[in-house]
């Protein structure tokens, strides 16, 4: 079947117009005293794992890559960051009471151990975020 000539032009136009529709994106203020590092005082290996594999979605210190400015991918990235911060926020650790902090740390270990986090669609594009056995062990050592 021959694709009509106008289709690529229309797609390009839609793509260009889509660039004018971008999601809200940004890093809210991150008080260092309220962070997980300051309050829970995790050991070095944990800090390293969090920085590499978790911070971009689960803190206010997201590193926004170039494709996070390109629609429609920007919408997927923004959605992940928004939901990630909602579920676990390493920059607002002061808002968790002692019981909740323990539950969150245990959840970090469980999600890492069962390979649920980082998400399966994320790591192929972010190879350095992959958790190895040592990383998982470091996270779980905090709790058990």
């Amino acid at each position: 079947m021959r694709i009509p000539k106008f289709v690529p032009t229309v797609l390009a136009a839609v793509f260009l117009i889509a660039q004018f529709f971008q999601p809200a994106r940004g890093n809210p203020p991150a008080d260092p005293a309220a962070s997980f590092e300051a309050i829970a005082q995790p050991p070095g290996p944990v800090v390293e794992v969090l920085a590499r594999s978790c911070r971009d979605c689960h803190s206010h210190q997201t590193r926004w890559p170039w494709y996070s400015r390109v629609s429609p991918v920007s919408w997927l990235v923004a959605k992940d960051v928004k939901e990630g911060r909602a579920r676990l926020n390493l920059s607002q650790w002061n808002l968790y009471g002692p019981e909740m902090a323990q539950l969150r740390m245990r959840a970090m270990c469980d999600e890492a151990r069962f390979g649920a986090m980082p998400p399966k669609y994320y790591t192929p594009l972010h190879r350095d975020a992959r958790l190895n056995a040592a990383g998982v062990a470091a996270l779980c050592a905090m709790v058990f």
Binding site: A86, G97, L103
Partner: peptide, 12 residues
């Protein structure tokens, strides 16, 4: 995500 623990809340 939030309503969890011994009280199903009250802890964050």
């Amino acid at each position: 995500t939030c309503h969890v623990g011994a009280l199903l809340g009250g802890n964050l």
